[in-house]
């Protein structure tokens, strides 16, 4: 059974992927806690799953189609109503380039 070890550098890498900025204290805590939790997940390795199909979804359905007909969407004003910042009928964000 492979023993998981997650280093602080792993935590920093995953935090970047998840777009989370962690404090030093959070990095330490998550390193320890994720090691504990993933250590518990190792339990699954005891199980032979060769030849077992994965279940991503419990209902036997796929490709749920509807007619490709136009229908009214959310009015722009309403869509922007919850935006932290909006201007000229658009979302406003900090400079990208």
């Amino acid at each position: 059974m492979a023993l998981v070890t997650i280093s602080k550098a792993d935590v920093e890498h995953v935090a970047l992927l998840a777009r989370l900025e962690l404090t030093e204290e959070e990095k330490e805590r998550y390193t320890q806690q994720l090691n504990n939790i993933l250590g518990y997940m190792e339990k699954m390795n005891a199980l032979d799953t060769a030849g077992v199909e994965p279940t991503a979804h419990v209902l036997p359905m796929q490709n749920v189609f509807r007619e490709d007909a136009a229908r009214p969407g959310l009015p722009r004003e309403l869509a922007l109503h919850n935006a932290p910042q909006a201007q000229d009928g658009m979302y406003k964000v900090p400079r990208i380039v």
Binding site: N82, A83, P84, P94, R95, I96
Partner: peptide, 19 residues
């Protein structure tokens, strides 16, 4: 922090705003 919900104040670029 773009379409709805909380956004921090004062971020100068978009990635740090997300984070």
């Amino acid at each position: 922090g773009v379409g709805y919900g909380f956004r921090v104040e004062g971020a100068t670029d978009v990635v740090s705003m997300y984070m």
